[in-house]
Design a protein around this nucleic acid. Structure first.
Lengths: 372, 372
DNA sequence: ATGAAAGCGCTAACAA
DNA sequence: TTGTTAGCGCTTTCAT
């Protein structure tokens, strides 16, 4: 049953009574071989159950048809979608992808990049600019393309997964127009090697700017930072149950789940007691009630695009590369955003004034059309 | 900047003024080399930026230290967790994993298995028994272990990801004890090649048995089947809004999201109008309100275990293989299960009798302790 | 159209 | 301890 030595092209050749070179040509179809011979070789290959050895092929061809995709964390719903998109698109182009989960761990990041280098992948997708560009030098030296490219790093538009100033400004303006004057901005702060904070900082800065423009004091925006693994912290619970708790919360996608749990535990109701805006995408964002408003592009789509432009770069196909251009984020207002309910004053239509958990459910039925 | 030809061990050897074999020995550390030489070689390697070529190594060693993991769908929350667990554990053992998403597509399944075969992976994890075992024959012939093994297929315990009769019986008994007399069982029916239906069928059969034992009629359990991609079907909506709609719904994990959306659209409230039980695990199952009861083992953990026992098999380490034994599912009762509210009769404490969506929120505050 | 042979980068056997 | 050499399986000259 088990045969240690596997069937090689040599075996096929001798079975078909031809030279190995002929067998190779017949099977790869890249060269002229007589129909007669081709059939004989194919029959022999099938009979013996021949399966070409990729290691040998790669060694010879100096190309693996593998694209490495390193994500900061597969647990981050953004990257979960991103990976699926990339995986799907890869097959369409005849590539395999090598998925690496860095688990927000700099050491693991290094390990994975090294592995990809040893495997001589044809390209590497890292999604966003990382803080330690020196890790990418070996790839550049070996002529292995990296996405986003080093060139992009110096461009005007910072290569981030969730990008696009307009959408953020629209979302924040909307939030402020609902009367929120105390807004928490919760995000993961990843250690050393990982993503550039500059992107995340910019997204938060825009909120601060918008708040300032609206005449709110400096402390209107409250940054709350979590270290990966610490997401289930009591800090969030304390923030949400404190006297001067925020009336709106902006969370990055990986924090959505722990934040929702914390909100449930404090008994707050969305959006009556707290408005929620997510930065980024999650496959299940529409499965919770009310559906969560977000600023994001479609991350599955972005994964596909990243792969497409990588294939374009590898194959020197500028059109394909252009087809893979990333899309800007959009603001998707949904039921999780609502007006501030002030203690004595006017309240949202239909919402009661009781402070603890209470009866009414404010409008989660109309599924999120822009309600500005 | 870009150098086409990458640095080989030959270059290192000549830089260090030794033979290639010596350089190899010095770098791999598997053989005796003088300290002096080792240092020289290491220095040379670092100076030149040498990175060993895995293709060459694999070709030589007839081992890739890669384990292939093929999942029916990465969109299925069970496998999302499973993959993350496997990916995490792989690193600990010095293996890489090759993740393949079959997207419930038989053709893609074939393609991926073929690719793994060509790459001569050291082992393949497919999670559950597949319907087309003939696809695995090439692996067996090549001596590449597959998990679950062919042997397991013939064993008493069917190798399924969610396994364990007791947990299911406990869950179903609980459900029936809450007074449910019409229970829908919603699941995906995958095309040809994919998972054995036998497991899914058994799990449903247990529900039917339990119903029969409880004296309910044959049609107490309503099977509802979905084809992947059709999840958001109107069928579910019709079922949920019909006059004799079920009072309880059992769903497999990949259907949880579309089912929740459908439930929201019909305005039904969980668990007052409908009890919900999930078969399988999802990372976000606790993020929705009320939290979803489930029958499952920890799928992240199961992914780790699968990888562990595969490494055990590859390395002939029976202890490690035993450590990776799968765990049976457990019943996790949570807030999504509640008693049937009969129209005129007695109702759950605190719940009103209004039929459409209404005010009260029934007990989602105490986060799902066993309420039997 | 086919065959012979070189060589991709590495490791292991054998020699020295 | 170190060097020489063969060969893993494949593709691709170059020759016929």
């Amino acid at each position: 049953m088990r045969q240690r030595r596997s069937v090689t092209i040599r075996d096929v050749a001798s079975e078909a009574q031809v030279a190995v070179a002929t067998a190779s040509r017949a099977l790869s179809g890249r060269s002229e071989v007589s129909d007669e011979t081709r059939k004989r070789v194919e029959r022999a290959a099938k009979k013996l159950g021949y399966v070409p050895n990729q290691s040998a092929r790669s060694l010879r061809a100096a190309s693996t048809r593998i694209i490495g995709v390193v994500v900061p964390s597969m647990a981050n719903p953004i990257y979960e979608l991103y990976l699926r998109g990339a995986a799907h698109e890869a097959v369409a182009h005849g590539y395999s992808i090598f998925i690496c989960d860095a688990e927000y761990d700099p050491a693991l990041y290094r390990t994975h990049l090294r592995t990809l280098l040893e495997h001589r992948v044809d390209g590497v997708i890292i999604g966003e600019v990382i803080q330690a560009p020196s890790l990418l030098v070996p790839f550049l030296r070996a002529g292995i393309p990296v996405d986003p490219s080093e060139a992009a790093r110096r461009g005007a538009q910072l290569p981030q997964l969730v990008r696009g100033t307009e959408a953020f400004k629209a979302a924040y303006t909307h939030l402020l127009s609902l009367g929120h004057e105390r807004i928490a901005y919760a995000r993961l702060t990843r250690p050393g090697i990982a993503m550039q904070r500059v992107g995340s900082d910019a997204r938060m800065a825009w909120l601060q700017e918008a708040a300032a423009e609206a005449g709110l004091p400096d402390d209107a925006v409250v940054p709350v930072e979590f270290v990966p693994g610490e997401e289930t912290s009591d800090r969030l619970l304390r923030l949400l149950s404190s006297g001067d708790r925020p009336t709106a919360l902006v969370v990055t996608a990986p924090l959505l789940q722990p934040v929702l749990v914390a909100i449930h535990e404090t008994g707050l109701e969305i959006p009556r007691d707290l408005s929620l805006l997510m930065v980024g995408d999650a496959s299940w964002a529409r499965a919770v009630r009310p559906p969560i408003a977000s600023v994001s592009s479609d991350m599955y789509e972005e994964g596909m695009r990243a792969l497409r432009r990588m294939v374009g770069r590898i194959q020197g196909d500028a059109d394909l590369e252009a087809e893979g251009a990333p899309q800007p984020a959009r603001f998707l207002p949904r039921g999780s955003l609502g007006p501030v309910v002030r203690l004595p004053g006017r309240v949202a239509p239909g919402a009661p004034q009781k402070t603890t958990r209470a009866a009414s459910k404010q409008g989660p039925k109309q599924t999120g059309k822009k309600q500005k």
